[in-house]
Design a binder for these strands. Structure first.
Length: 428
RNA sequence: AGAGAGUUGCCGGAGCGGUCGAACGGGCUCGCCUGGAAAGCGGGUAUACCUCAAAAGGGUAUCGGGGGUUCGAAUCCCCCACUCUCUGCCA
């Protein structure tokens, strides 16, 4: 959530930023916000003055009662009646203004960092870099859904039987591969200084709000209505919300956490080849990184986190490229996002496997996540996160890129200690 | 799931419907004391918002969350959440 105090100080960067986000009536919205803000402050000023006199009168009534001057007390009481009504009205007014402000503010996305390219949609994302790993075949590589079926390692039909589409069942070496990847990613993260967190897989509404999934994105999350919980769409939600309403000490920063969780996404409206096979699931596994940093350090951290994720892809010998998402394609909460995509030879397409974002204060503002600065004042921190990594598309790419002429699939060297086997399927 | 008890500041812990942002103790911190330290003594020690050009100062709100009664609520009433104990159930 954007900081109203900052908008009040200097609205122009916000107007520009929102325009770059393709919000046409950005200026009007900011203007509305400022008006609401002014009205709110006017009302509060009056309200608090009234409350002040009210409090004082109440005290004097107390005194008069003690002194036994009942009639005088009654007189003061009757004088208060009108203020009391006015206070009620003003309270109502403030509440209305605040909820309008909230409604408006929650529709506004984060302001993009100056380095983010302008653009409408994914086609305007900038390819920043690409590694030099190539995969070549002297036969036509198959898509992973065929390979998975042939080797009986992933079963979509069973998933449909148990639950529905988008909930595959991993079997045998398919299941072991999942576990191996999770373990590999977590081990690497620990070596890189991240603390492993195993959070709840359901969150409450306050947590959903804190990281920006609620109030608007309910459609993305599965809801357990009876208990008022949501299934997490990513470990980012619980792991970032660990620090909700905290005031951290500078010496505790940066916070570097990682965690493996299944992720649950409704993905309403997705269709076509995007959802084929492992490309887009309702339940998938992911290891997530979360960092909380001082404002001055967040962009440096963003680069380091992204490089770290790239090192995982390199270790897995996958061809990948790094995108810088344009102003139109970055997520609602992000100020700057890098996407990492791997090349999947069977489908001949790039698959997004990681998204690394700096949210600056956008989440921290919602979370009320602060630190004490040199002057002992509380300031909002910056939050970041990144997938390291999301499993299904990694699995898709591994299967497709590492398939051999004989139909078997080689496991990358680094994973073998984790899988205990070096190949899926028959060798010649 | 049923019955009961509870939820107060960084922690422990008081609190009668009235001057309670909250006794008392501990912690932390500053000052004095000391050659230095301990002890001792004295002071400070929440957050958000409003006011103010800013600082100072002043004000409002906050005692799990929300609503209500009242001139006035940490204290009374209602709803919700959480914690603990017992019973039940169970990986």
């Amino acid at each position: 959530m954007l900081e109203i105090q900052k908008i009040r100080q200097d609205a122009q960067p916000f107007i520009d930023g929102l325009k770059n986000r393709n919000i046409k009536d950005a200026a009007e919205k900011i203007e509305q916000l400022l008006t609401l803000d002014q009205n709110r402050r006017d009302s509060i000023t009056e309200l608090e003055q009234l409350r002040n006199t009210m409090n004082q009168s109440s005290k004097s009534i107390g005194k008069l009662m003690k002194e036994g001057k009942k009639e005088e007390a009654e007189a003061v009481k009757s004088e208060l009646a009108s203020s009391k009504e006015r206070i009620k009205d003003l309270e109502q007014e403030v509440q209305t203004i605040e909820s309008s402000t909230y409604d408006l503010l929650t529709t506004l996305p984060n302001i993009p960092h100056p380095s983010v390219p302008l653009g409408k949609d994914a086609s305007d994302n900038a390819v920043i870099s690409q590694n030099d790993i190539q995969v070549t075949f002297n036969f036509t590589p198959k898509p992973h859904w065929d390979l998975a079926l042939e080797h009986d390692i992933i079963d979509w039909k069973l998933g449909v039987k148990l639950t529905g589409s988008g909930f595959p069942v991993y079997k045998g070496k398919g299941a072991i591969l999942q576990r191996a990847l999770i373990n590999f990613f977590l081990t690497k993260a620990r070596e890189a200084g991240y603390t492993e967190i195993m959070p709840p897989l359901m969150i409450n509404e306050a947590s959903g709000f804190g990281t920006g999934q609620l109030p608007d994105k309910e459609g993305q999350m599965y809801e357990v209505q009876l208990d008022g919980f949501y299934l997490i769409p990513t470990a980012e939600v619980p792991i970032t919300n660990l620090y909700r309403e905290d005031i951290l000490n500078q010496e505790d920063l940066p916070i570097k956490n990682c965690g493996y969780t299944p992720c649950f996404r409704r993905e309403a409206g997705s269709y076509g080849k995007d959802v084929k096979g492992l490309n887009r699931l309702h339940q998938f596994d992911k290891v997530e990184l979360v960092q909380v940093t001082l404002p001055d350090h967040s962009y440096d951290t963003l680069e380091k986190m992204t490089s770290y994720v790239e090192s995982l892809l390199t270790a897995l010998e996958l061809p990948f490229r790094r995108l810088l998402l344009c102003t139109g394609d970055a997520t609602f909460t992000s100020a700057k996002t890098y996407d990492l995509e791997v090349w999947s030879a069977g489908q001949e397409m790039w698959l997004e496997v990681s998204s690394v974002s700096n949210f600056e204060t956008f989440q921290a503002n919602r979370l009320k996540l602060r630190y004490r600065d040199e002057n002992n004042k509380t300031q909002l921190l910056h939050t970041l996160n990144g997938s390291a990594l999301a499993l299904p598309r990694i699995v898709a790419a591994l299967l497709e890129n590492n398939q051999q002429a004989d139909g078997s699939i080689l496991i990358p060297e680094v994973l073998r200690p984790y899988t205990g086997f070096d190949r899926i399927g028959e060798t010649i």
